[in-house]
Computed example of a mutant assay.
Amino acid sequence: MWAELAETGWDAIIAWSAGAQNLGRLLSSDAGRTVSVVCTRGGVAERFEESFTEKDRQMVDDDVNEYLAAAEIPSRPQGYRWFLRVPSAYHSADAFLRDVHAAVVTAESGGPGHPAQLRPIVETVVQRFYT
């Protein structure tokens, strides 16, 4: 079973920390994808959907790779959805990701906010799930 990771620097560090043997990827496409937009004018919020553009894709990829660079981790290849192998002790990908995220938050407990300081904490926590 595999758990799909979010398109965030946080999840990218988790993926890196899990190691290549626990990481999977599939080619991705943004075709048909939308984003929710909220415009506030005169105190009135207007909500609508827009197409996810190439510029949106570039912004997401740049943000993730900037976060990885700050953690001294190489940029990830673009154009993929990323997945973590779920250990056999878990029967739910969602439960596994919730536990990983909770364990990282607990381990950092208000500590380092900078990705370079967070990286060793994430590495230690994530590796415990695979031993």
Rank of each mutant, 00 (worst) to 15 (best):
P77Y: 01
A103E: 13
S29H: 10
L97D: 06
G19Q: 05
T40G: 05
A103L: 07
S36N: 15
S17W: 03
W82D: 05
A69S: 11
L27M: 07
I14K: 06
G43S: 03
S29I: 06
G110Q: 09
V38L: 03
A102C: 06
M1T: 03
M59Y: 11
L97W: 03
L97A: 04
D63S: 11
A69T: 05
M1E: 00
D56H: 15
V104C: 04
L118I: 01
A20D: 08
L118T: 04
A70F: 09
P112D: 15
E54T: 11
D56Q: 07
V64P: 11
A93Y: 04
R81M: 04
L68Y: 15
H101Q: 01
T106E: 05
G42T: 03
R119T: 03
T124R: 15
V38K: 10
F52C: 14
D11S: 14
S92G: 00
L23E: 13
G43V: 05
A45G: 10
A18K: 03
F129D: 03
I13W: 09
V105S: 08
V44L: 03
Y80S: 00
A103Q: 13
A93K: 05
L118F: 04
V122P: 01
S75H: 14
R85M: 12
V126R: 03
T53Y: 08
V126Y: 01
W2H: 09
W16R: 14
A31S: 14
W16K: 12
N22L: 09
V37R: 08
E108H: 08
S88I: 09
R81G: 01
A70R: 11
G110K: 11
F129V: 01
N22W: 12
H91I: 09
Y130R: 11
E7Y: 13
M59F: 08
A45Q: 12
Y90L: 02
F96Q: 00
L5N: 12
E108Q: 14
L5R: 08
W16T: 14
A89H: 12
R128I: 08
A69L: 12
V64M: 08
D56K: 07
H101N: 00
V104W: 03
I73Q: 10
L84H: 03
H114A: 06
A95M: 10
G79Y: 09
R128E: 12
A3Q: 07
M1I: 00
R119P: 07
Y80K: 00
D56W: 05
P74N: 02
S92E: 02
A71I: 00
S88N: 10
A71D: 00
H91K: 12
T8P: 04
D61C: 10
E49Y: 05
H91F: 03
L68K: 06
F129S: 01
Q127Y: 07
H114W: 14
A6I: 13
F48E: 11
W82A: 04
G43P: 02
S109P: 06
I73K: 12
A18M: 00
E7P: 14
E46I: 11
S92I: 00
R119G: 08
A93E: 06
S28Y: 09
D11Y: 15
E50D: 14
V64G: 10
E46Q: 13
G32E: 00
E7S: 10
A6P: 10
H101I: 00
S51A: 08
F129Y: 03
